[in-house]
């Protein structure tokens, strides 16, 4: 039962990340996901200090604000400061993350948080972190609900904004001409990424979030002819990552998040290798048929 709960939670998180990650990869902003997942740390700490509790809503608000601020800062440094995109990302998230680490160490006595927990998470605790209502009814694991609501919102966001997301990703200038603001949709997407990162970090940690945001979409990209196709494949690879990753962790009795990220990399390598050999064969075949 506990195994199943962990797998379901991981699958929900993987699905949310896999769907949003498709747009990050296509916008060549995969590393922005990485940046946001680290830069939300000071937001989480500040939200904790202000609200005095680890309830999810203040965390999501604090981290969500920081996530959008990160995006704004990266855009500002890149566009107005004329710094390269990758350097803007690197500068922004390292100092924000460092700020979070300092905040934690200064307020260590008051904060029931540590950066290890943010970075690595602990999905194994999902089944024992229960949501118990005021009247004492056990509703099951808290994180499971958070992940389910997150996935639901991500799906609604993508279905409602599908054509806007597609157009602003493929051709933002053309989108501007027809009256669809690329900037607005960029911030909406980044807001969703921030929210997803925060709602997932408790369960799986920032590092696995990054892996789930990038690896399944990148794998799907190698195989896809259309955007819908890529979203579905990314979802599939995300689920596969969660299930096989848990199996691996169980086998070796090791870190679950570590095992899942490893599996994500293995799936990517496998698909990459298959596509690569296919191309080589296709090339040599067409050469032969020419001669």
């Amino acid at each position: 039962m506990n195994d199943l709960l962990i797998i379901i939670t991981a699958s929900l998180v993987a699905a949310s990340c896999g769907l949003l990650g498709v747009f990050l990869v296509l916008r060549k902003m995969a590393m922005v996901g990485d940046a946001i997942s680290h830069a939300v740390l000071p937001g989480i700490v500040l939200a904790f200090l202000f609200s005095g509790s680890r309830d999810s809503i203040s965390m999501v608000l604090g981290a969500g604000l920081l996530g959008v601020l990160t995006t704004l800062l990266i855009e500002f440094l890149h566009k107005k400061g004329r710094l390269q995109a990758d350097a803007s990302i690197g500068v922004t998230f390292t100092w924000l993350f460092a700020l979070g680490v300092i905040l934690i160490s200064v307020f260590a006595g008051q904060v029931d948080l540590d950066q290890d927990c943010v970075l690595y998470g602990e999905i194994a605790y999902v089944p024992i972190d229960l949501w118990i209502t005021d009247s004492g009814i056990n509703m099951g694991p808290r994180v499971l609900y958070i992940a389910a609501i997150n996935l639901l919102l991500v799906i609604i966001f993508i279905i409602l904004g599908f054509k806007e997301l597609k157009l602003t990703t493929f051709d933002p200038q053309f989108a501007g001409i027809v009256g669809i603001s690329a900037t607005t949709w960029n911030y909406l997407l980044m807001g969703m990424v921030s929210y997803t990162t925060v709602s997932s970090f408790e369960a799986v940690g920032a590092i696995l979030v990054v892996a789930l945001l990038v690896a399944p979409p990148a794998t799907a990209y190698l195989l896809s002819k259309s955007l819908k196709n890529m979203l579905l494949l990314s979802l599939l690879f995300g689920l596969l990552t969660a299930i096989l990753g848990y199996a691996l962790a169980w086998q070796i009795e090791g870190s679950i998040a570590g095992a899942m990220a490893t599996v994500a990399g293995v799936i990517f390598s496998f698909v990459f290798f298959v596509q690569w050999t296919k191309r080589i064969f296709a090339k040599s075949y067409s050469k032969k048929s020419l001669t």
Binding site: L26, K163, L167, K225, S226, N229
Partner: peptide
């Protein structure tokens, strides 16, 4: 980016989005 996963029909349909 012409490597974007989309088809000719899809691109032309984008002309209708506005």
């Amino acid at each position: 980016d012409w490597d974007f996963p989309t088809t000719v029909l899809d691109v032309v349909m984008m002309g209708r989005y506005g």
